[in-house]
Design a protein around this nucleic acid. Structure first.
Lengths: 144, 144
DNA sequence: TTATTAAAAGACATGAATGTCCTTTATTAA
DNA sequence: TTAATAAAGGACATTCATGTCTTTTAATAA
């Protein structure tokens, strides 16, 4: 479904969101420990998220990653996914055809479009902050 | 979503189903022309489908691939997908955790499970033959 | 200003998926 | 029985995602 890079991106973002909410800035070592991911690879992904202005990074002592408060209050899962995997997951044809539409559908099109669309809606309607809150309350987990 | 191998598998199966329905046995060259896929790679995938008893192959002159009539009348998309990609697409955690369930969910679990399940239902409830029929009627396409 | 810290950046390594090529096996027809 | 045909099988090549390592850049505090 999502690439590993994208999964690490989502996990990281949720964790940073949780820590940001409690006023903490977090370093890469803490993040990878919390979300169980490879450090250097995750660092690359955080660079991408930073360039996409989803998270902010601060260098130097006591540096690390945070999410701008304004941003955090409206950040959707779709933004994180699109920054890493693009929008192909809910745009592309299920059978891999370049041309596939209502007018010239692949044989799976009508069966598939609903699911593709629900995924899109879910990502666009899910706020990172609500996921980080469930994490903070101990209702969900990032390390299994 | 699906691997390329799986997409080629689905396309091939639908095409073979269509040709089988009109009493024709089809060779690999015809198949890859019809579904626009790399020949040698597709041949490997058809081997897998053959081993999984989804399609049948006949060697020698006038050989090729067919789908057993009995099989064709009940063949579901899920069987094709599972033969190539396995069931991870609707079993695995969206964020890649090994442990993720109703009791110990990842932060995305409750948002994701519905989609994962709909995909499963769609694949399990969609017959290959109905897709091949829409193709035969010119209502869908395998080559764009 | 210098030393320290932590992220950024670039080069490189590994593994899995995708794709190709060549030989072997099985079937058919002459 | 032999020649021709087409799938099966094995070895190899390529590409892309994943992952690591080292150096550079920026920020902080002594």
């Amino acid at each position: 479904m999502f690439s590993k890079a994208c999964k690490y991106a989502i996990r990281s973002t949720i964790y940073i969101a949780e820590q940001t909410s409690s006023g903490k800035r977090v370093g890469i070592k803490e993040i990878v420990k919390a979300i169980d991911s490879p450090e250097a690879f995750t660092a690359k992904i955080l660079q991408q998220l930073s360039k996409a202005q989803i998270i902010e990074s601060v260098k130097g002592p006591a540096g690390g990653f945070v999410i701008n408060e304004k941003k955090l209050n409206k950040l959707k899962l779709s933004e994180v996914v699109e920054a890493i995997d693009g929008d192909s997951i809910y745009k592309d044809c299920g059978l891999g055809f370049k041309v596939c539409s209502e007018k010239t559908p692949c044989p799976m099109h009508h069966k598939f479009k609903g699911i593709r669309n629900e995924l899109k809606e879910m990502l666009e309607n899910t706020c990172v902050i609500e996921l980080s809150q469930s994490l903070e309350k101990g209702l969900s987990f990032l390390n299994r």
